[in-house]
Design a protein around this nucleic acid. Structure first.
Lengths: 142, 142
DNA sequence: GTAACTGCAAAATATTTGCATCCTT
DNA sequence: AAGGATGCAAATATTTTGCAGTTAC
């Protein structure tokens, strides 16, 4: 089971100055294998017997802080997280892609190939970050 | 204190088939007077001595259900709500505007004059709803 | 008068914090 | 060896549910 993915996870952790522990590796593996986004509760469902709920909270927070994953805004108080692309670094995220939430399978995907369109705001606003979440039906569920 | 705004609130409630009670009127007044969006906790801070927390939950839910307010997705597990425009009706919301979160004053505004740009998704996706949240610095905080 | 709204109590759920112990570097 | 990560306990916060009393229509 110490596979290529396992190696990938370890490399990613090191690259983001996170110490390599079983918990972090396992949680990161979830993100690597399953391409969709994960909420805290999803992770708890899958690993809750192996790791404490608190550890999952702290791990996700550490991952966000170090630019390994980013959070996706939601309307239902259950933030989902997804892997960042290479151009995210500690401190500043660059999620210039949109997110898609499928109403049928309830998965959330990063559509890396679709950039967030630029918006023109009224005079006086400074734009810092743009988040776009599209909901509908995904390819698999059509 | 029974002012024009009070009348506006009552009219709005009736127009959305919500019965007119003190609690609903007061909460709606908050949305009318303050143009920014409000989270549950904001409302509780302002009216928590007058109304039960549970009533606030239920009132917000009723407002959303009847198309009086809409929720704005967020990254921090604190959903904010804002008044809907006239073209929102019970059951189906039409928030085709973008939302702006100011990092300085932490207010959230609906920019009704800025429509959400259309996005082109890869083949196979059906788009149902588009949410756009822009963060930065607002006019007042520049 | 009836249906709907409200407050209170309580349950269920989610999140944070402190601390002692263990593990990574 | 030292600093950071983890688990456990517990505190805190958030959201939901049931029910009895009250109010709007």
């Amino acid at each position: 089971m110490s596979s290529a993915r396992q190696q990938e996870a370890i490399t990613l952790l090191k690259a983001h100055s996170l110490s390599v522990t079983d918990g972090r590796t396992d949680i990161l593996l979830l993100f690597i294998s399953r391409k969709g986004a994960l909420a805290h509760s999803d992770i708890e469902k899958k690993l809750g017997d192996r790791y404490d709920r608190v550890t999952i909270y702290r791990t996700l927070q550490a991952f966000v802080d170090k630019g390994l994953i980013h959070s996706i805004p939601s309307k239902d108080n259950s933030i989902r997280y997804a892997l960042c692309k290479d151009d995210c670094a500690s401190g500043h995220h660059h999620d210039h892609h949109i997110h898609f939430v499928c109403k049928t399978c309830d998965n959330t995907y990063c559509l890396d190939e679709v950039a967030t369109p630029s918006v023109k705001l009224p005079k006086g606003y400074t734009v810092n970050q743009v988040e776009m979440v599209v909901s509908g039906v995904c390819q698999a569920c059509q």
